[in-house]
Design a protein around this nucleic acid. Structure first.
Ligand SMILES: [Mn+2]
Ligand SMILES: [Mn+2]
Ligand SMILES: [Zn+2]
Ligand SMILES: [Zn+2]
Lengths: 153, 153
DNA sequence: GCCTCAGATGCAAATGATTTGCAAAACCAG
DNA sequence: CTGGTTTTGCAAATCATTTGCATCTGAGGC
């Protein structure tokens, strides 16, 4: 379990979701806003607020509502995942192509810095909970919070 | 790790937070709405939405805004904790008197049923993450989601 | 019991995040 | 190119939560 700067490992383009192909396959259109949003998320690999994504776009690239709609489409197509830090709206991050793993985050409650925690200890827990409760398709949502070195004291 | 119906164990009154005393100690007033809210939460021991709490009160017991303000006071006084299921607003549940443990929940994504999971496997994880990241005062937020027996198939 | 006033409440309105309606604009298959 | 479908922008609606303010009330003190 080694936390690391969120998204510090720049995935190759090949590992990133192929917008064009996926859109075509669903008879959706390849548009400027969608490309710009994906590009912005590639360049800022950490969970971003809709407002932040919009801010990263050349202000006049597209409307805030279009960011909402595009992110939702990307999410339904499995290219983006939604993350909740519990304050100030949902956040979204890219899902690397062919990524079957998930990860968690360690968020500084003072400055908002985010580290990524790759190892998940809860897959066993999910199976155990399924057996004990009779639930199926059990998943989990887990985030860690604390004070980063710069924000202590 | 044995999930169980959320709040199925009715704590004795003695184990529940003592509103009167705690309010007095902070020079806050013992009012009808506050007593009614606490009573409603006692009778429905699971994470409730503000709207649900308000609904449980005799409609004209108090204003929705008062529920917000009262719950926030109770939370700041350590009698109530906030829980996020990620949809439709924050939820709140009573903290039994002298309770130093926390627990997690298993939520049915179809019907909303909630089981409580008493064991937490992440306290060690917090310590390990602190050592590995340099963060301090690390806490976590964890919920499980799935389909309860009645909602499968 | 009555006074007094900090603390509480109701109601209206403000905020902030997200969604929806709709007409105009952009894609792209043919 | 053209036509028809998908997208987008803009305004307005929704939802959850907060804030402002005038009015009300619980509870200590007389
Ligand atoms: Mn991440
Ligand atoms: Mn609970
Ligand atoms: Zn996990
Ligand atoms: Zn825990």
């Amino acid at each position: 379990m080694k936390p690391r700067a969120s998204g510090c490992c720049h995935a190759h383009d090949a590992e990133l979701p192929d917008l064009t192909e996926k859109l075509r396959r669903n008879s959706r259109k390849i548009t400027g806003p969608r490309q710009a949003i994906l590009a912005a998320m590639r360049n800022h690999p950490r969970p971003l607020l809709i407002k932040e994504i919009h801010g990263l776009l050349g202000k006049r690239d597209c409307d805030l509502v279009t960011v909402y709609r595009s992110i939702d489409l990307l999410r339904r197509m499995g290219m983006v995942r939604r993350i909740e830090f519990g304050k100030g709206g949902s956040r979204y991050e890219l899902i690397p192509e062919g990524d079957s793993e998930h990860h968690h985050h360690l968020v500084c409650e003072a400055c908002g810095r985010v580290l990524q925690i790759d190892e998940c200890l809860l897959l066993d827990a999910e199976r155990i909970i399924e057996k004990a409760s009779g639930f199926r398709a059990v998943t989990h949502r887990l985030e860690f919070f604390g004070l980063c070195p710069d924000c202590q004291g």
